[in-house]
């Protein structure tokens, strides 16, 4: 996208430069050519291609039913992140997920609007009071990923960060149990 945009930008700048440096160059270009090629055909083709690509990609990222995904709940409140796991255990400030498999985060709205975002794992989704939104993430390898609240939520907005900790899929349940029982550091 960046390359395409740069090319378009350079193209427009070049036309502008020609207009200023070589006055009258376009005096014999019929106006309809500007409309049809510049105004309709060129953006039409570029944008259609982009739109089809975008919609296809978006479709692929959706949490389609049927795929097996590990599901956790996120309950952000002013100004901390609370996560709830299938067994009912909770952690605050750190989200534990298995690596190498899709994870559905059900983001549940509580007080004001927050937004769940782990930049390196995927897009963001808002936590809207009264609603539950689901986002599907996959951490390819174990590790620690930074997460933020990306919707402005008041005085503590800046500090409302969390860590997504991806564990090896095999030992995940055990690691999670250890963390939740307080045996391992959170």
């Amino acid at each position: 996208m960046l390359a395409g945009s740069s090319a378009i930008f350079l193209f427009v700048s070049a036309l502008l430069a020609l207009a200023l440096l070589k006055p009258g160059l376009g005096a014999n270009v019929p106006p309809k050519r500007w409309l049809v090629w510049g105004g309709l055909a060129f953006p039409g083709v570029v944008l259609s291609a982009l739109l089809v690509f975008a919609l296809a990609t978006g479709e692929r990222l959706l949490p389609h039913p049927g795929t097996q995904a590990y599901t956790v709940e996120a309950l952000p409140e002013q100004w901390l992140w609370r996560f709830r796991y299938p067994g009912g255990g909770e952690s605050v400030g750190t989200l534990h997920i298995p690596a190498g498999q899709p994870v559905d985060v059900r983001v549940i709205g509580t007080d004001v609007i927050h937004s769940f975002w782990v930049p390196r794992l995927g897009g963001k989704i808002d936590a809207i009071p009264g609603h539950v939104n689901t986002i599907r993430l996959t951490a390819d390898r174990p590790g620690s990923y930074g997460g933020v609240c990306s919707e402005f939520c008041g005085t503590g907005h800046t500090g409302m960060i969390f860590t997504a900790l991806a564990h090896e899929a095999e030992g995940f349940e055990a690691a999670l149990a250890a963390v939740l029982s307080g045996e391992a550091p959170r």
Binding site: L15, L16, L20, G26, V29, W34, G39, P43, L47
Partner: peptide
């Protein structure tokens, strides 16, 4: 999303007509 992309076309029409006017004239 589609409407957001579509709206770029009338904007593009204007940009190219302005450019065309500049190129046809002696700015």
């Amino acid at each position: 999303s589609a409407a957001s992309v579509l709206v770029a076309i009338p904007t593009g029409v204007q940009i190219f007509l302005w450019l065309g006017t500049l190129m046809a004239g002696r700015p």
